[in-house]
Design a protein around this nucleic acid. Structure first.
Lengths: 183, 183
DNA sequence: TCCAATCTATCTAACGGTAGGTAGTTAACG
DNA sequence: CGTTAACTACCTACCGTTAGATAGATTGGA
């Protein structure tokens, strides 16, 4: 799905706004202003807000998993988890923003169904990646334990971002992530 | 601060709406419809939306800490943490809703300052309670470690609610909470 | 005790602004 | 000529907020 440059600009702006205040924090008018077109032109690229919202989450998830790479070709389970944590850290510290699917997941009940479904996909694909990575440890664990471990990691990192941002202290994220690694 | 019955009804519906979709998910008009008055009457009780939002978060936090009780008079550190986890579980399973401050914390950057400050207070008061409880364990730990442990617990529970709701499976919360207890 | 003043809680009506969305047109390009 | 990507101009619905009025209860003083 190759997209025009303007369409990607629109997704960039929408993603940033959504990662600050959720689905209701971006609008066609504000996006239009930011990318210097009229709001009707934004509708040209993304017919409805549902479409735009779903596209934003889809692209975010694709990029996230792309950055993670192939779970089968990681150096070690430990280093892969460290990289995984690093990706959340980048989202928080480098971008200075919340994880899109953390904020979308929190408000999932009020989301248009196709947007909520994309948020769900983020978590399912992350779980799958983590389970694949964790299953490469030399200690053999039941698959259900690996899944719970994966869920725990995701939950802790999403929560750590929320707490760190609420208290306006990125070191809080690092402290929590550090404890998480040493388990 | 004793409030009229109608004011409490307003806070009830605002809280529910906010716990489904965040700060932008409730409006004076919708609240008015739900409590069977006109929207201008809602403004009589809470002059601005900032005021209403702050009052909702404040009441939520007060009730939460009230339910936790005095951290000095708990049976044991372990049972107190179990009770703490149970409170999140109630919010998720009994109410069928997100933690108000989990969702508000995620969108804190887009919140009116006085609402964001109340969300921050939720976390600070929770940390204080947890540190007080954890410091009663017979193993002596540095205070900083206790704080990190408190942050980890809060983050994991908030994240667990998000993941469980996104995947529409409350047992996910229990699995994560169970792992958290056994650390 | 009666009356006037005040308070509580609500109403109707409207304000300016923004939301998502649409119909029809225009300009540039291959 | 058809496609792409923009435009103008508009619509309906909703947003938070305010002004002004009103009915009923409460209260304080003559």
């Amino acid at each position: 799905m190759k997209r025009s440059e303007k369409a990607n600009e629109i997704l960039d702006v929408a993603e940033k706004m959504a990662r600050q205040g959720g689905y209701n924090n971006f609008s066609f008018r504000e996006i239009a202003k930011a990318v210097d077109v009229k709001s009707s032109s934004v509708h040209y690229h993304f017919p409805t807000k549902d479409d735009l919202g779903a596209a934003v989450v889809r692209r975010y998830t694709d990029r996230f998993l792309d950055a993670l790479g192939d779970p089968e070709s990681v150096e070690s389970s430990e280093s892969a988890i460290a990289d995984y944590i690093g990706l959340y850290r980048n989202a928080l510290v480098d971008d200075g923003l919340m994880c899109l699917c953390g904020i979308m997941g929190a408000e999932v009940e009020a989301l248009p169904p196709i947007v909520g479904a994309e948020a769900r996909q983020f978590f399912e694909r992350n779980i799958k990646w983590l389970v694949a990575v964790l299953s490469q440890t030399n200690v053999s664990n039941p698959a259900s334990d690996l899944r719970v471990r994966a869920l725990h990691i995701i939950a802790t990192l999403e929560g750590a971002m929320i707490v760190a941002r609420s208290l306006d202290d990125h070191e809080i994220f690092d402290s929590i992530a550090n404890e998480l690694s040493s388990l």
